[in-house]
């Protein structure tokens, strides 16, 4: 069941991130078809109302995101899917006047909006890949090691190891291994996005949030990122926001459909796309609106 380590509390000095990884996990070989062990809830979103100033962006949203699964948030623009995603690592804190008026978001049982939660620790655990790829104007190597250096890791051998591992993990190693000192901005759009994914996994988070990671990419680059998501699902819990319904259908296990700030339907991806329970969902996934 739930690991004993109470994560996300501001209990510095903290154990290294890897200890938060459940050590007893069975190799999660669960593909979209396999129904193995009962799904373990990692993130529990409980009746959340969210406001930008006076504007309510989320209305009573409740859903449970399962560990080591890919969860897709779909819905038309302005439906609140990105807002919810950014609640999960508290990126909304950066915007003045935002607040969760009601409800809670718990990760492994810890309410992440409590005052005693260290948002820095939280973000180490819940990484993020943005819509617009944002490699830093530094070398590829420095991009990957950025997060680790923040944590005070300066051992060259260790950094080298992480760089290779992360780049391999992001399926980018073979393309860039000879030019790690080149600027990350010299890469193509798709490579830049994979670099950002590599940068996120370098700090070994538990969850990776992806905010429309492919919206600026061409189909070939998109396919590569989707392939990558398939590989990462065994090691990370992934929440992906996408405009692209085919993408949700192709690479997620569970799909949540949002409309006007409300969660309309949340189910296995197969079910959402083949036998949606809700008429609005059906209309959206069949392309009749949105």
């Amino acid at each position: 069941m739930v690991t004993t380590a109470p994560i996300l509390m501001d209990t510095r000095p903290v154990a290294p991130a890897s200890t938060f990884r459940p050590t007893t996990t069975t190799p999660a070989a669960a593909g979209p078809g396999a129904q193995a062990a009962p799904a373990e809830t990692l993130i529990d979103i409980d009746h959340v109302d969210f406001f930008y100033g006076a504007t309510q962006a989320l209305h009573d949203v409740s859903l449970r995101i399962e560990n080591r699964k890919v969860t897709a948030f779909i819905g038309p623009s302005g439906c609140g899917k990105s807002t919810l995603l950014r609640c999960l690592n508290r990126m909304n804190d950066l915007i003045d006047g935002t607040r969760i008026a009601k409800g809670s978001i718990r990760i492994r049982g810890v309410d992440i909006h409590q005052h005693d939660v260290d948002v820095i620790e939280l973000r180490k655990q819940v990484g993020m890949v943005f819509q617009k790829s944002n490699p830093f104007p530094k070398s590829i190597y420095e991009n990957i090691t950025y997060g680790l250096r923040l944590q005070g890791v300066n051992n060259k051998a260790r950094l080298d190891e992480v760089v290779e591992k992360s780049l391999r993990g992001a399926a980018l190693w073979d393309e860039v291994k000879d030019r790690l000192d080149a600027s990350g901005l010299g890469l193509s759009g798709g490579q830049q996005q994979r670099l950002c994914i590599a940068r996120a996994i370098a700090v070994e988070p538990e969850v990776i949030l992806m905010d429309e990671p492919c919206s600026a990419l061409d189909p070939v680059a998109t396919a590569k990122v989707e392939e990558l998501i398939q590989e990462l699902r065994t090691r990370f819990t992934i929440v992906i926001v996408t405009h692209n319904m085919q993408q949700a259908a192709r690479c997620s296990d569970k799909t949540a459909f949002f409309y006007m700030g409300k969660l309309i339907e949340y189910a296995d991806t197969r079910d959402i796309f083949t036998k949606p329970a809700n008429a609005q969902t059906e209309a959206y996934v069949s392309g009749r609106f949105g």
Partner: peptide, 8 residues
């Protein structure tokens, strides 16, 4: 954002 999201 990229930096903050990495725990900076």
């Amino acid at each position: 954002e990229g930096s903050l999201a990495l725990g900076a």
